[in-house]
């Protein structure tokens, strides 16, 4: 049995006192609060509780479990892990992903890579379906940046160059095509 928690707030509906009805005392009290903040911010600006969003942002706590702006992971040699399988584009309910596939010409057995990978964040609904759908562990939503607060639509349009980024401790070795690539990369290093 789950206990029900209902929060109630009692509203004070008593009639106003004479002092309150006089109006000016209340105005002065309100002005006092405003002035208190004004002088505090004037002499000790580090205590300001608001930030100049979107230029300044408060970093998210390290243990924040949420979906943030996308990134494309990289392999050890700097090539994208993405193989342009179009699974994320297929799964995307907002039609905000647009991939163009290409073929490696240098003998890479993975064969396929994204020539272009665009995400229109102004359309994105941050549902995370692309991450769920990815068979190669190539796309993630863990950059800790909350998209939005852009001044133009173009700023919200992410291209492959904007998206490619690894976090410390990567690259990861998951994904079948990645295994192919790593084997090939190993032989290439030995030959060198």
């Amino acid at each position: 049995m789950v206990a029900r928690m209902i929060k109630t707030k009692k509203v004070d509906n008593r009639p106003l006192t004479l002092l309150e009805r006089l109006y000016f005392t209340e105005i002065a009290a309100g002005m006092l609060v405003t002035l208190k903040h004004f002088f505090r911010n004037l002499f000790k600006p580090s205590n300001i509780v608001t930030v100049n969003y979107p230029e300044d942002r408060i970093p998210l706590p390290g243990n924040a479990r949420l979906r943030t702006r996308h990134r494309l992971k990289l392999r050890a040699d700097g090539t994208p892990k993405c193989v342009a399988c179009y699974m994320c584009q297929t799964a995307c309910p907002a039609y905000c992903i647009d991939i163009t596939a290409g073929e490696y010409s240098d003998g890479n057995p993975v064969e396929k890579y994204p020539v272009g990978f665009d995400i229109d964040l102004s359309r994105c609904v941050m549902c995370g379906m692309c991450v769920e759908a990815c068979p190669e562990d190539a796309i993630a939503m863990d950059t800790g940046e909350i998209p939005g607060g852009a001044l133009t639509r173009d700023e919200m349009f992410m291209t492959k160059r904007d998206l490619l980024r690894n976090l410390p401790g990567e690259p990861s070795l998951l994904g079948a095509s990645n295994r192919l690539h790593n084997e090939w990369d190993g032989t290439r290093v030995k030959k060198k």
Binding site: C85, P135, S177
Partner: peptide, 11 residues
């Protein structure tokens, strides 16, 4: 059979 579906055109 390899796990090539993401890069395979037949998928």
């Amino acid at each position: 059979h390899p796990l090539d579906c993401p890069i395979c055109d037949q998928a």
